[in-house]
Nucleic acid binder design. Structure first.
Lengths: 109, 109
DNA sequence: CTACTACACTCGCATATGCTCATGCAAGCG
DNA sequence: CGCTTGCATGAGCATATGCGAGTGTAGTAG
């Protein structure tokens, strides 16, 4: 496997992206957008978060390239720009489940 | 593709794991551990970070299951406990490179 | 025993970040 | 024109977090 050059500068960029995903609210928004584009109001209703809050999370997700925006009249439609997010989440979930199974083996006797 | 149940509770756990990776110093430490186990002092020298700092990052990485510790005399040896970290980083790097190429296409004419 | 080493931990500071409240602003409607 | 709607943005607050300085502790050597 060809190893990529992971200089401190690159690591900083990667860490910055991970930080965007390190927030349940943003993961929740991405999850809502899994099946298609939604407006800000849709996302407010779907997530239960405040409007200003959702708007700011969307701004970050847009700046990081996870979603993209489409203005139409009064509405802002947001859509997933990169579905690799789900791949990342699945890897994390696999890790969590593996650890859970390991704990189960230790604790149940 | 079987979709996993991503309830808010699960998303919180996933976000918590992403947060551990959302720090250049910790990514740097993981990178150093790629080729084998190292002591805290090794990591301090390799990364240029302070000893207390490295120790605390290692504590977090250990608690999150990314590394594991082995005490031997005066030394604490740390080793990678899960190489899926590099898979995650590669996906992120692919994303970054794709975005860079897109910007290049737009900016160079 | 003392002295040293490798490491973990506590404290305090500086900064970052999520959240809410309020406001600004553009687009549509009367 | 004024009014409403959908959304973005700034101020302020509470909390979290990375960091360094200093201290504690277990193991080793003399």
């Amino acid at each position: 496997m060809a190893r990529r050059a992971l200089t401190p500068d690159v690591l900083a960029l990667v860490a910055e992206r991970f930080r965007v995903l390190a927030e349940p609210a943003r993961l929740q928004i991405l999850q809502c957008l899994r099946d298609g584009e939604l407006t800000v109001t849709d996302l407010v209703l779907a997530t239960g978060l405040g409007q200003a809050n959702v708007s700011k999370h969307l701004r970050q997700l847009d700046a990081s390239g996870f979603v993209s925006r489409r203005k139409e009249g009064l509405f802002s439609f947001y859509i997933l720009a990169d579905r690799s997010v789900f791949q990342l989440c699945e890897i994390m979930c696999d890790r969590l489940q593996a650890e859970h199974r390991a704990r189960t083996r230790v604790l149940t006797r």
